[in-house]
């Protein structure tokens, strides 16, 4: 592989390494075993949301509702548990609910011919958050069974359970996107929906699936978060849709669709987690953290643009 191609593939990863090195010198606490485990655990929810968001963004779409679907799933799974539903069943039900809410997004987009995914998912963002607040009257539902809490707070050896969940989802999504015909269809839709349709890709069905998957990962995030906080609370995931979009974009995906990898997205989520954690350790205020993350998003995309332009120039010189 050429140096340029290597840089492109591993750019976000190099960024993460550099960031770790810098934070390691700035804070004694950063490069400790406990803290790195801590970062992985804190990044888990965003990583899960970002996986679903990645699949959506590959189709040149956007899902603004992931944070709210997380909130609603969080409340519903807690209600189910409180009603005595066995935790395993409640987890499956929550994933199903998330998938169903996501597929509503897809149906609205494809069947009502709404002009842009922004619209149905913006609607769902409000509806799901509102329902979450209505259902529990605004109160958190706490004291969940410990076998359920495992998914957010437990660990196997020294590996936190949320990290295991993220790894499993990453492997499944990676295989799905790169090794299955449906995954290839999804990239094609993002690259050129018209050509995909004329090549026999059932575009509508694929889009519905894509938004359903995004709902499923949001629900998975809800399970982890509810376990971590020992409660289903309606404000869960407020604003996290933007964090997930940021992670996907930092991870090298393109808003224009057709481009994006699971590995890059995971690195993007870790960059955000590491940044927040490092700044917390240095007692930097949340307001400044917001500023830094904004700068990183723009810088990551700008680096990508510069790199692409250099590549084009190189190609033009060869031709």
């Amino acid at each position: 592989m050429s140096p340029a191609a290597l840089l492109r593939r591993f750019g976000p990863l190099l960024g993460l390494l550099a960031l770790c090195a810098v934070l390691g010198t700035l804070s004694d606490h950063f490069l400790t075993f406990d803290n790195l485990i801590n970062v992985f655990r804190q990044s888990a929810v965003n990583a899960l949301l970002s996986l679903g968001q990645l699949v959506v963004i590959i189709t040149a779409g956007i899902d603004l509702s992931v944070g709210s679907i997380l909130g609603l799933s969080c409340v519903l799974v807690a209600l189910l548990l409180k009603a005595g539903v066995p935790p395993a069943l409640a987890v499956l039900a929550a994933l199903g609910i998330g998938g169903a809410l996501g597929s509503v997004n897809g149906l609205l987009l494809t069947k009502l011919h709404l002009p842009h995914p922004f619209i149905p998912t913006l609607g769902m963002m409000n509806v799901a958050r509102g329902l979450a607040l209505v259902i529990c009257g605004g109160f958190p539902i706490s004291e969940l069974p410990s076998s359920f809490r495992f998914w957010g707070a437990g660990s196997v050896g020294w590996i936190p359970a949320p990290v295991i969940v993220v790894v499993v989802f990453c492997v499944v999504f990676h295989v799905f996107l790169t090794r299955t015909t449906v995954g290839r269809d999804i990239y094609a839709i993002g690259g050129n929906p018209q050509a995909a349709l004329l090549s026999g890709v059932p575009v509508d069905a694929r889009l519905i699936l894509v938004y359903a998957l995004s709902g499923v990962t949001a629900a998975a995030g809800a399970i982890v978060l509810a376990g971590r906080m020992n409660s289903g609370f309606p404000l869960a995931g407020m604003g996290s849709e933007l964090d997930s979009i940021a992670a996907v974009i930092i991870g090298g995906a393109s808003f224009f669709g057709g481009v994006g990898t699971v590995g890059g997205t995971l690195v993007g989520a870790l960059i955000m987690g590491v940044l927040r954690n490092g700044l917390n350790l240095m007692n930097v205020s949340a307001y400044w953290q917001t500023v830094v993350i904004g700068v990183v998003i723009v810088a990551a995309v700008w680096v990508d643009v510069v790199r692409k332009r250099a590549a084009e120039k190189g190609r033009a010189a060869v031709n």
Binding site: N38, R228, M229, A236, M238, N277, N280, L281, T290
Partner: peptide, 23 residues
Amino acid sequence: VLAPAQEINIDQQVSILEDQILK
């Protein structure tokens, strides 16, 4: 003195506390 950006960011407050506990 630290705080999440808004009162509703409960999980952000939890992360801040975790990081301080770690220290």
